[in-house]
Structure formats: C-alpha cells, structure tokens
C-alpha cells in the first residue's frame, strides 16, 4: 500500500516536471504542442549517451539534459514555432505531430529501436524498508528533487518580476504588450525553460519510464491529460493533476492489471465532460 503510494507520488512528480512546461506554454501562447515529449526524449538520450558512452556521472548528466533540451527548444521556437502562433489549431497539431515523427525516426536511426538502460550511481540504488513496504532510494530522490523544483517554480512564478510578467501575459497578451512587456522574449524563455524541464524529466525518467523512440508518443497523452485536467492558468493545477494521474495509474496497474491504462483514459474523459476547463482551473 505504502509502496504503491510512494511509487505513485514519484511517478506523478516526474510527470509534473515533464509536463509543466507544456501547460505554461499552452496557457501562454494558446499553442497546441504535441511535440513536447520529443524534448523529454532529447534529455533522456543525452543522459544515456553521456552516462553509458562517456562515463559522465549521473548527477552531472541531469543539468546537461536540461541545457541541451532547452537549447533544442529555443532553436525550434525561434525558427519554426514562432511562425505558427497565429495558425489554426489544426496546423499546430499537424506541425507538431510531424516533429514527433521526425524525432522518433531520428532517435531510431541513431540510437536503435530497443529500450535503453542506464546504471544508476551506487547511492541511488537499493531500497529502504518502512514497515512492510520497500521504498527505492531513487524514487525518494525523485520525489525530493521534483518537489524542490515545483516549489522553486511556484516561487519564480509568484515572487519574481519575470513570473509577474508571465502571469500578466497568460491572462491577457495584448494588455501585457501594452504594458511594455517583451512578449516574444517571454515566449522564447518560457519555451526554453519548459523544454529544459521536459529534458530533465526525460533524464530522470529513463530508469522509471523506460526510454525508446516511441517515448515521445507514448507519454504525449499523459502530458496532455495533465494539462487538460490541471488547467493552464497556474502550475498548482497541473501539479495536483500529475499527482492524481501518477497515483491513479500506478494503483490501477497494481490492483486491476486486467484493464491497464483504460482507467486513466476513462477518468480523463470523465473529468473533461464534467469540467471542460479542467478540474483545477479557476473558471
């Protein structure tokens, strides 16, 4: 029971780090980005290459995964995404599905179709027993790291000048522009940080979620669930949605393995029917 809970929380926290960038960019730019998972994949493969082929320590891989995914994000944002902010949602969907296909084929070409494994450092292996439950150190590490990041993000959004500008732009882009906020720079920075966080999530997720070229599609729906259920007007909503999804998915697969992911999709559709704006949205 406790194991399931901790696993679920760790899984949920990881989903939050993976998806929170998406929820901010969707809220900010009203852009439907189905390729968000591709940036997570970048982070994952960066970690695999650095750790397995170059012998870089795991903890040093994490910032590298963040930076490289953020870099990929900012380059694509400035060159391609920026042309589509005013396009129809259909165009955005098609464009980003295209990016996902390219990313998947590229990963397949360079890294192969099989699942990649990594060796975690000594101090993250093993488990601690609490009562009957066996909790892995790595999951505790994830809960801790992602928890800190979530607090940091919330702080950045609510207490810093940048955060204030960001919230103003999410509420009303035109007004923000009128106030002299450089919205296009804001877009670029936000997109970069969001992609970077996805990359970090991808790096952390190699061990937990598995990494192969289908990653970008396999988790796309999870990210979208987080955004759709959590809403896009704060990061508290996506955070709660991630936890709910993580615990629900782990518990569902543990207690009723027969129906698999069905339960998650059903919950999502149910939530969207009752609250089309998302479960935790203000409106």
């Amino acid at each position: 029971m406790l194991t399931v809970l901790v696993d679920g929380v760790a899984y949920g926290m990881l989903l939050f780090i993976l998806a929170c960038g998406l929820s901010v960019t969707m809220g900010l730019m009203n852009f439907i980005n189905l390729a968000h998972g591709a940036f997570a994949m970048v982070g994952g493969y960066v970690t695999v290459i650095m750790l397995n082929d170059m012998g870089v320590p795991f903890l040093a891989c994490l910032p590298a995964a963040f930076v490289l995914a953020a870099l990929a994000g900012v380059v694509l944002e400035r060159t391609l995404y920026v042309r589509l902010y005013k396009a129809s949602h259909l165009d955005q969907v098609m464009f980003t599905i295209g990016l996902v296909f390219i990313a998947m084929a590229t990963a397949d070409y360079f890294m192969g179709a099989q699942q990649k494994l990594i060796q975690l450092p000594e101090f993250l292996r093993g488990r601690v027993g609490i009562g009957d439950a066996q909790i892995s150190y790595y999951r505790l590490f994830i809960v801790l790291l992602c928890g800190l990041l979530a607090v940091g993000l919330q702080f950045a959004l609510t207490r810093t000048r940048f955060g204030a500008q960001l919230r103003a732009a999410v509420d009303d882009g035109r007004v923000a522009r009128g106030l002299g906020i450089d919205v296009s720079r804001l877009f670029a920075v936000t997109f970069a940080v969001g992609s970077g966080l996805a990359g970090l999530g991808g790096a952390l997720g190699v061990e937990l979620l598995g990494l192969d070229p289908t990653f970008a599609v396999r988790f796309m729906i999870y990210f979208l669930i987080v955004v759709a259920v959590g809403g896009t007007d704060s990061i508290v909503g996506p955070f709660l949605a991630s936890l709910l999804l993580g615990i629900g998915d782990v518990a569902g697969k543990y207690y009723v393995p027969g129906i698999g992911s069905f339960i998650i999709y059903a919950i999502m559709v149910g939530v969207l029917i009752v609250r089309p704006q998302g479960l935790f949205a203000r409106r």
Binding site: H89, I221, F262, V269, I273, Q277
Partner: peptide, 25 residues
C-alpha cells in the same frame, strides 16, 4: 462537442485510446 479545441482533441484522443485498450484486453 463540449469545450474548446484542446478539450476536443483530448476527448477524441482519449476515446480512441480507450477503445484501443479495450480491444487489446
């Protein structure tokens, strides 16, 4: 038909995935 484009995407995608899972199981 309820909700915005994003919700529609999600609901159509979700229903599709549900059917896929159902047929799979």
């Amino acid at each position: 038909l309820r909700g915005s484009d994003l919700t529609r995407l999600m609901v159509t995608l979700g229903i599709g995935m549900m059917l896929f899972e159902a047929a799979n199981k």
